[in-house]
Every structure is written in C-alpha cells, then in structure tokens.
Amino acid sequence: MTEIIAYTLMGIGILFDFIGCLGLIRLPDLYNRLHASIKCVTFGTCGIMLGVFVKHGFSDIGIKALVCALFLLLTAPVSAHAISRAAHLAGVKPWEKTVCDHYEKDK
C-alpha cells in the first residue's frame, strides 16, 4: 500500500515537472515562462520528494527528502522574484499582448 502511494506521488511529480518544461517552451515571454518554471517545477519536485519520504519513512533518506522539499519551497520564490525584477529593470519587454504594466508606469 505504501509503495502504491509513494509511486503515485512520484508519478504526479514527474508529470508536473514535464508540464513545467513544456510551458518553458510554449509560453511567449520571460515572465510567463517563469510562471511555468517556478510553480509547476516546484510542485512536481516536491511531489517526488514526498513520494521518497512515504517510501522510506522516518529514516535518514526520508527526512533528507522532506528537508529538500522545504528548502525548495522557501528558495524558489526568491529566485523568481530576483530574476523577474532584474529582467524588468534591465528592460526586457513583456509580450505584446500583455494587458497592463503598472510596474513600468510607477517607475
């Protein structure tokens, strides 16, 4: 039973990682691509880590996987924030169909 839950979690994680990579290719500009790479890949990798934790339980491997997921959740948003802000300040233009850009207006 634990095995089934663990492999299901890992499968979901790999699926979301794949969708994130697909979004990285399909979406039109840097900011939209960041959405795919930050959210889907964080969720997918956390799913894989959770699967490893369920499979191994409270052993050294399981705890390390859990800590990995936690660090990923804490650091991924910071990198998204840093990349997007730096790109905007460096003058990377959003996609032409972008509805509004209040950040540009307030600068």
Partner: peptide, 23 residues
C-alpha cells in the same frame, strides 16, 4: 488548485492567457 489551473493553461492548444503586471 493553482498548479492544476497552470497545467491546463499550458496544455490547452489555444494558450488561453492574458498576462499583465498589476499593483
């Protein structure tokens, strides 16, 4: 919820997005 929504937008052939920066 957000990840399922994001996955739908990425996989949809028409790419239904309306991006923008709001305050």
């Amino acid at each position: 919820k957000g990840n399922i929504d994001g996955a739908y937008r990425i996989l949809h052939p028409g790419l239904p997005i309306r991006p923008g920066i709001v305050k």
